[in-house]
Nucleic acid binder design. Structure first.
Length: 271
DNA sequence: ATGCGGACCTGTTAGC
DNA sequence: TGCTAACAGGTCCGCA
């Protein structure tokens, strides 16, 4: 479900409720997520004050003086602000109960998400250490894409979705960015000129930036911390539009499968 | 080093 | 109407 814009939307929605607040306790109902929630995590987090809620790629970093909780929403995760008394549902796997009486509840039907703890600099954590640049910050541009693509034969779409190259671009925004940059998703990454990579970097920034501004994309079930859907869905130009006219030229949008993931593109606009 | 396929898990929908 | 298969927004890991 969540790509960078959805995670950032979640972060922005939760930050005001978390930052400066003390965590009274952590209630774990289901430990088995992508990795088991560490047994000592509730003990380490209880009594701590949240100094900041940050994001790195699709990970949320909840910082405290004792260490940092890493949270990932996987494919189907979401987090909401509730009052602690609200009855939990079947897939509500853990709660962060605050002194204020609020409760940040994590829900994830498929359990591909994660809640982990690190007492050290989270940037050095094995899951974060190898991540590429943030697409909406300085350090990401066409030159870095071009440089990293040298000699590589992977399809540009898979390349773009590789978090070691750039973080935050998932299946929806990869198709959207390639359409805006007019690049065929099947092209070998190493065969694209610097100029085209610059267009692609710009398209990635544009798509993700607009999506963040609209609160992300809700296709089926994404909702922010307040339970609101994202409004970028309407801006999607190719994703989930197979057979419908390309909004630029009218050619029917094509669907294909790359590496077990759906890709959508316009065979006329994208070369 | 790179690239590919499988693995993790549940819910929803398309098709027979 | 009911069953089954395919598919869904992620990404790590092991193997060739």
């Amino acid at each position: 479900m969540p790509e960078l814009p959805e995670v950032e939307t979640t972060r922005r929605g939760l930050a005001p409720w978390l930052e400066g607040q003390r965590i009274e306790k952590v209630v774990v109902r289901q430990r088995q997520l992508r990795w088991p929630i560490p047994r000592d995590l509730p003990r380490r987090l209880a009594g701590q004050t949240v100094t900041a809620l940050d994001r790195r790629g699709k990970y949320l970093l909840m910082r405290t003086a004792a260490g940092t909780a890493l949270m990932h929403l996987g494919m189907s995760g979401s987090m909401r602000v509730l009052t602690a008394a609200t009855a939990p549902g079947r897939h509500d796997h853990f709660d962060l109960v605050l002194d204020s009486g609020r409760c940040i509840r994590y829900r994830d039907p498929r359990r591909f998400g994660a809640l982990l703890w690190t007492a050290r600099d989270p940037a050095c954590h094995r899951l974060l250490a190898g991540l590429g640049p943030e697409p909406l910050e300085a350090g990401f541009d066409g030159a870095c894409l071009h440089g990293r693509a040298r000699g590589r034969r992977v399809a540009i779409k898979a390349f773009l979705m590789n978090a070691a190259i750039v973080v935050g671009v998932g299946n929806i925004y990869a198709s959207e960015a390639l359409h805006r940059a007019r690049i065929d998703p099947r092209r070998a990454a190493g065969r694209l000129s610097l100029a085209r990579m610059q267009q692609l970097a710009e398209a990635v920034r544009e798509v993700l930036g607009e999506a963040v501004a609209l609160g992300g994309t809700t296709l089926r079930d994404f909702h922010d911390g307040q339970g609101e859907p994202g409004y970028f869905s309407r801006q999607l130009r190719v994703y989930d539009r197979a057979g419908k006219p390309c909004l630029a030229c009218g050619t029917p949008v094509r669907h294909l499968v790359q590496g077990q993931r759906s890709t959508y593109f316009c065979p006329t606009c994208q070369r």
